[in-house]
Write a protein that binds this DNA or RNA. Structure first.
Lengths: 184, 184
DNA sequence: GTCTATAACGGGATAGAC
DNA sequence: GTCTATCCCGTTATAGAC
């Protein structure tokens, strides 16, 4: 699965060659088919893998650090996805690709919806800790907007049209705007 | 170009078969290559085409209607892209595909950046008509967020994870939030 | 479970006539 | 400018041995 994430991040879902994946993983193509049945099977499994991995690195705080206030934790959690480190870039690229592929491949939609829901709920949860008085509906809407915006900014960054630092500023600004809106 | 937009919207950039495009346009594959050189040439031209077409349908108001106030015009212009009509769906799908492809195909980036800039400036302009006192920087940032959010919502809609009506509500809510923020 | 080898096919691109 | 015909390569997927 790590090899799959790497190859998709490097070539895209469109450019994924089972042979290249096999080489990256150090096995034969036949073995890939043995385990995943077909190309779509690979994609589905990869989607699950990166979704789990993203959840881990946005949730886990390293044990030495002092705990953050809710507001910073929210901002951190979103800005973590806009970083130029191998893992994050890999995850963002692959996520964007799988999202885009789902437009034409219904087989990916269920898994994608599941992963998206988890993410939105996690963000709504964090928003609720900053604005305890807000209604669940308002929190959910804000979370949907923030995560959708993050996806939008992410593709722009990865497609070379938006410098990372600027993307981060825009994201932080949106958090401001949404929190102000939730204050009433 | 109309045929290209249709085929990309139906199959995606990855699913675009030159033969299918030729059939859709009612010509031979050789003729496509004669005019566009290669596959990438087709994509570049299509990107320009849908960007022009989108600009037309978001800008032109039909002559019979009375003029809208700035606020409604802004909202309209953004919500026009979240509609389930053949042309809009075609444009949104193709736009998303080309954006996603640009992550791995540098040949598309220049054209994409150009088209994005025009769009962002148009939205910033509309925002400026609602909030004449806002700085150019603040208007630009809000426009970038709103357009990036629209792209994000659009893919979620097209990939089946977000009902159109809900996407429209979220978009309208973001316009609210940004305008409130620009008020100070 | 894992490999080598290969079948089978799709589709990008071009030659050359008109 | 436009066509028909075709080359040829890359890719998915499987057969069958170990």
């Amino acid at each position: 699965m790590e090899a799959a994430a790497r190859v998709i991040a490097r070539r895209g879902v469109r450019g994924l060659r089972v042979e290249e994946l096999a080489a990256e993983a150090g096995v034969s193509t036949a073995l890939i088919y043995y385990h995943f049945k077909d190309r779509t099977g690979i994609l589905r499994a990869t989607l699950e893998f990166i979704s789990d991995r993203a959840e881990r690195y946005t949730t886990e705080r390293d044990p030495g650090a002092e705990p953050l206030d809710p507001r910073s934790e929210l901002e951190q959690s979103l800005l973590l996805e806009l970083q130029d480190t191998p893992t994050v870039r890999e995850n963002s690229t692959a996520w964007g690709e799988l999202r885009a592929s789902a437009v034409f491949d219904p087989d990916l939609r269920e898994e994608l919806a599941r992963a998206t829901l988890i993410w939105v709920q996690e963000v709504a949860e964090l928003l609720g800790q900053v604005r305890p008085m807000a209604t669940a509906t308002a929190l959910a809407a804000a979370a949907e907007r923030l995560t959708a915006l993050l996806e939008g900014l992410s593709v722009r960054w990865l497609s070379g049209g938006l410098p990372l630092e600027h993307a981060r500023e825009l994201m932080a600004g949106a958090v401001d705007a949404e929190l102000a809106r939730l204050r009433g």
